[in-house]
Computed example of a mutant assay.
Amino acid sequence: MRWDTDGRHVPHKEWSQFVTAGGLKWHVQIAGPQDAPPLLLIHGTGATTHSFAGLAPLLTPHFRVIIPDLPGHGFTQKLNAPDPDNVARALAALLAELDVQPALILGHSVGAAIAFMLTAGGHVQPQGMISLGGALLPFVGMGKAFPGLAKALFVNPFMPSLFSFSTRFQSMPDLLQRWTGSRSSREQVAHYERLFRNADHTAGALSLMAHWDLDTIERSIAQINCPVLLLHGERDKTVPPSTSHTVAQRLTARGTRAQHHGLPGLGHLAHEEAPERHAHAVDDFARGLGLL
């Protein structure tokens, strides 16, 4: 995507800056008091910083928020072989360049998995993590087929353009609700329409999925020692809501403090549907850690 043509649609673009780190040019948004606890927000596959457009302003009174576009997404340069380890190392390089050590990390979907990889790999030492609809376990009935299917699509050079073209003839509100179980606002739907109709962004999302290793993510759970809050929309059609419950049980069984809360009436994009509710949950969790 090109900033000169698409940047005008970026929510909170006054927060945006471009940073070169780890061999990539990153688009990252930063806002909030300089002396506030740093909070890293990591979006999911196919999204960008826009996913936190409603939530982030509710967090900036208490936190210094750092919100990057993931590699190959939005305005961040693509990463060759974006497997979980490589993405975690690339994001760690960005944090080092920004001289930021997150006190708290919040990740949505695959973003939660990246948060786990960052922490399990020793790249960061947050005082707590928050998972929103975290894609942290192999999907029941899918196993290794999920990244395999994405790879089959990714290696076809025409598929990103074909997918982007095909979305022009489908109702994006219907697609989002069918894929995620969420009822998105008109503004959020417009953002996803622009993203899915951009072949470069679609290719970045497919590349991330094609190189994803759900078994590696699952193994990272055993390396998490900081407190974890797992929030999950009970109408989620993308990641089974039982995933967060299972991960909370595993963390608790090995002595890690973990809380799981199901969110009735919300889907996979729960934080976009109910940002105020999520902001309250983040603030309460941070207070419990002594960060606020």
Rank of each mutant, 00 (worst) to 15 (best):
L266T: 08
L41A: 06
V28K: 00
T119Y: 06
D83V: 08
V124N: 00
H50D: 15
F163L: 10
P37D: 02
T45C: 06
T246A: 10
G265A: 10
R219Y: 09
H191I: 01
Q188L: 07
N225I: 09
L98Y: 10
L251T: 00
Q177W: 05
G148H: 08
H191E: 10
V239C: 07
L206C: 12
Q259M: 06
M1K: 04
R219E: 10
K25T: 13
Q249W: 00
E187C: 09
T5H: 15
V247C: 12
F18W: 08
D283A: 14
A152F: 13
P37G: 10
E273Q: 13
Y192D: 06
I114F: 01
L195F: 05
Q249F: 06
S171Q: 12
L118M: 04
A21H: 02
A281Y: 01
V124I: 09
L137Q: 00
A152L: 10
S220R: 00
S131E: 04
G262F: 03
R254V: 02
L95I: 08
L292S: 11
K237Y: 07
A270P: 10
Q170E: 12
R277I: 05
K13T: 07
F116V: 03
R183L: 09
P138K: 05
P241D: 09
I224S: 14
V155M: 14
S171G: 10
H123G: 09
I30R: 12
I221Q: 03
L104N: 05
P11D: 11
D200M: 13
D284N: 12
S164Q: 10
I30N: 02
T202M: 15
G23P: 12
G204I: 01
E218C: 12
G181Y: 02
A279V: 06
I66M: 00
G121C: 14
T216E: 11
H261E: 11
